[in-house]
């Protein structure tokens, strides 16, 4: 009886595990014909990516609290505790296609014409000020956008290791510092 219960438990755990995966084994086998690098991102797809895939970027309300909590727990802060770093370094990252590539989706850069996939950030710091709350919000959205906007298209720069906490603090400074080119120079394409 005890053994049967254990088997049942093991089976239900297995079922739960499978339910959380997006591509099943026969599908992964086919995906492997795409080459090692391509297959790897699906074999090692993260559970949060699987959830967004399963629900096509619209998570059901009952999943949201746990999802948001998990995403929040991924956020780390700079060693020195400062959320605003060097705006000049931040600008170089913001405007680099290979690096953060922020301008491709957000309008507001004085260097490149911005896109309109994300909200306009034109004169971001002048409109919002530099309060602790604004610094924190800006830092956290860049570090892990899914902690505020589950499954959004915006890269999770910190959570996925694309940028360091210090680099993100530099971008926060680029957006917020009233002295930053972002706030003193006109955005490319501004009317």
């Amino acid at each position: 009886m005890k053994k049967a219960l254990l088997t049942l438990l093991a089976l239900s755990l297995l079922a739960w595990g499978l339910a959380q995966r997006y591509l099943q084994d026969p599908e992964l086998e086919r995906v492997k014909s795409g080459g090692k690098a391509y297959a790897e991102v699906f074999v090692s797809q993260r559970p949060d990516q699987a959830l967004c895939s399963i629900h096509r970027n619209r998570l059901p309300a009952d999943l949201l609290p746990k999802f948001l909590e998990e995403q929040r727990s991924l956020i780390k802060y700079p060693q020195n505790g400062k959320l605003m770093g060097d705006w000049k370094k931040g600008g170089a990252i913001f405007n680099n296609l290979q690096k953060a590539n922020c301008f491709s989706c957000h309008f507001g850069s004085p260097v490149h014409l911005g896109g309109d996939v994300g909200p306009s950030l034109e004169k971001y710091g002048l409109k919002r000020g530099q309060s602790e709350a604004v610094q924190r919000y800006t830092y956290e959205v860049i570090y892990n956008a899914w902690a505020y906007f589950p499954c959004t298209v915006m890269y999770r720069f910190g959570a996925q290791g694309l940028l360091t906490p210090e680099e993100i603090a530099d971008i926060v400074a680029y957006l917020l510092d009233p002295e930053s080119d972002f706030n003193t120079k006109p955005a490319v394409g501004s009317k």
Binding site: Q45, S53, N57, Y155, Q160, G161, L162
Partner: peptide
């Protein structure tokens, strides 16, 4: 499989066809 790949989020940038 194609439908699933189209709606998948994957890789270090969490990208996928449908997202855009």
């Amino acid at each position: 499989l194609g439908e699933k790949l189209f709606y998948a989020r994957s890789g270090a940038r969490d990208v996928g066809c449908a997202t855009c």
